[in-house]
Amino acid sequence: MKSEAIFFAPFMFSGILSEETLQKVAFPNNNMLEQTLNAQLQLDQYGTGVHSIACVFIALPPPDNGIHDETLIYRRREKEVFAQVKIPYDLVASYDADQVLQLMATTYLQALERLDELRIPNFDSVRLAQDVQRLFETQGWLARETA
């Protein structure tokens, strides 16, 4: 099916979810991540190599049937980074919405920190990850590790 970019934005989020995880991941957390990043950061400040970063969170109960896998790719023609990342279902089930948001933010940041492996030309992924981390910390979305 030809993709129609109806809701295109530099930072985009979606989910592969179940009934149990839908409310905690999608509403309102996905939208909150998307709106905050698009409002606070300009992707073109990091180079011309990436026009958009799309992230899909996978939160499905076991067993894993192998249909939805994690991935991190760079689509050169569209200049789009696509990440599909899993968040542990048992944590999503036991956390409240705010904690799930922290889990999503941490997972997303980890994916950004791996962008360096893709060697995307004309794009400073390291600086982007650092700025996103600062933003998430400001928002209180990164869980602080206790000693």
Partner: peptide, 10 residues
């Protein structure tokens, strides 16, 4: 999914 503003619900 992201570009189309959709969520996948198993």
């Amino acid at each position: 999914l992201t570009r189309r503003g959709l969520l996948y619900l198993r």
